[in-house]
């Protein structure tokens, strides 16, 4: 096994970990605003690491460029979409007169979450 395979594997494992973290965050966090973290942080980092892992297997620099471009595009799009979703959700709550803070600490959601994870 050559050194670039080793680097590839490390990046792959790390990327997989971050994707797993993103999904766990999506499933376990209590409301929309906290779940946005999964979209904007964990998964984009995971994708970046997987792209990095792929880069060590590819010689053609054009393909190299394309992969980096895809990652940049996903970063750009998901950051914007996350902002738009958050904005919309916040407005919806204002319209329905649901206090944001109260919603986040709605009994049965957050408490159950914390009780389950024994924090």
């Amino acid at each position: 096994m050559s050194w670039n395979d080793l680097v590839s594997l490390t990046c792959l494992a790390l990327g997989g970990f971050f994707f797993l973290a993103g999904t766990v965050g999506l499933l376990r966090l209590p409301d929309v605003f906290t779940r946005l973290h999964a979209l904007t942080k964990a998964d984009n980092l995971g994708l970046g690491l997987i792209v990095l892992s792929a880069l060590f297997q590819i010689e053609d620099w054009l393909v190299w460029l394309k992969l980096v471009f895809i990652w940049a595009l996903v970063l750009f799009a998901s950051a914007t979409v996350a902002h738009l979703i958050a904005r919309r959700a916040l407005r919806q709550m204002e319209k329905e007169r649901i206090p944001v803070v109260e919603n986040r600490a709605k009994p049965g959601v957050a408490e159950k979450h914390f009780a389950d994870s024994r924090l």
Partner: peptide, 15 residues
């Protein structure tokens, strides 16, 4: 209604 969306679209469309 937000500059974020306007800028996003302005950049994404040519792409």
């Amino acid at each position: 209604d937000t500059p974020v969306l306007a800028t996003f679209v302005r950049l994404l469309l040519p792409l």
